[in-house]
Write a protein that binds this DNA or RNA. Structure first.
Lengths: 191, 191
DNA sequence: TCATCATAGTCAAGGAATTGAGTAGTCATA
DNA sequence: TATGACTACTCAATTCCTTGACTATGATGA
């Protein structure tokens, strides 16, 4: 079991529907978990079946009704248990890194292009996270907020996400530059 | 298909057995992919069946024989295709981040302990990667190596891994400190 | 000498994730 | 007025990954 705890943690912010979670997983929670809508719907149904979440129908006008979920007593207990248990080491999986690993044996041009694209994506994500952080801490400065804010968990994880995206951007640009310089040399070498 | 390309990329360094890959996945390749031995053996068998790898038996004394694999022509072609195709966005999955997200609603003490443990692991990993980088570039300085080295792919990915581990360490210590300060305040508040 | 660790792998079961398609109503745009 | 985009969700098939156990041999240590 794995996604379940990420879903429970995401629902600590309030009530959300599967659709909202699927959207919201792009920011915030996406810093430490990633899931497709199908998975989320399935997991929400399972968690409700086990009594860790309770759902209720929200009737809407001008758009389809939705079911939103909140964490139950049992859900909190499950999170408590999870937080105290020893964590598995994290893992990254990144196609782009695999390509860079193999870059000496394949055409470098598309890899360079993808590195630059990824750098741009990381920059955009970093900006979104920066805004989210400012919103979370309100008028307080960071130190003050961390001392006195009611909920700092989401702030801490967003900070991790921001550092990660910045690091990603820097590395992508540096790696792309390093590869470009070699291509120049190859082409400009003595014939 | 996913693991297959990571395996192909890992085998560009030379011939390796499933067992060696399983060990080696802890460092180097682990910066962008993670897999259990069972998966590796299965994937190696599949890749050999498809002709992307060729394996041969190495007879050893004092220990069991082993089968090592190398990338075939078709394997290189597959990597070439993969490198040119558009990459999926990477993803992280980290139990510890989930716990931090939920930290305001659960007992913070075990989360703090896990953050410190993770920081220590990250530091150890960073040291291993630092040594690996020095070994890869030999006597050259980084800039010189990146310009003239034969294979820079593994160097670039290790550099990413190093940055990631350092960032992880810094963040874990910072987050743990932030949480500890709040616990102090809670306990020291006016009765 | 008995236990344990390291090398080198295999097998089976079950849970988790991805791929791909499909339903159904609302709204804006052309 | 039909085309596509957005909200909101569902289903099935397949592939992928994890869990846990199991077989051997040789070396190390108590």
């Amino acid at each position: 079991m794995a996604l379940r705890h990420a879903v429970l943690a995401a629902l600590l912010d309030g009530e959300f529907s599967g659709y909202q979670l699927a959207k919201g997983f792009d920011i915030g929670v996406a810093n430490f978990w990633h899931a497709l809508p199908q998975q989320l719907y399935a997991e929400l149904a399972r968690l409700e079946g086990e009594g860790l979440l309770s759902g209720r129908e929200i009737v809407q006008e001008g758009r389809p009704n939705k079911r939103v979920f909140q964490v139950t007593e049992d859900g909190f207990a499950e999170l408590e248990r999870f937080a105290a248990a020893s964590a598995k080491p994290s893992f990254i999986r990144d196609d782009l890194l695999v390509k860079v690993q193999a870059v000496d044996d394949v055409d470098a041009a598309p890899v360079i292009a993808q590195l630059r694209e990824r750098a741009a994506v990381a920059e955009a994500k970093a900006e979104v996270l920066g805004k989210l952080l400012r919103r979370l801490r309100g008028e307080l400065d960071e130190d003050e907020f961390l001392r006195t804010g009611r909920r700092i968990g989401p702030y801490l994880t967003c900070r991790r996400g921001l550092a990660f995206e910045r690091e990603t951007r820097e590395w992508c640009l540096w790696a792309a530059e390093s590869l470009v310089r070699r291509e120049d040399v190859e082409c400009a070498g003595p014939t």
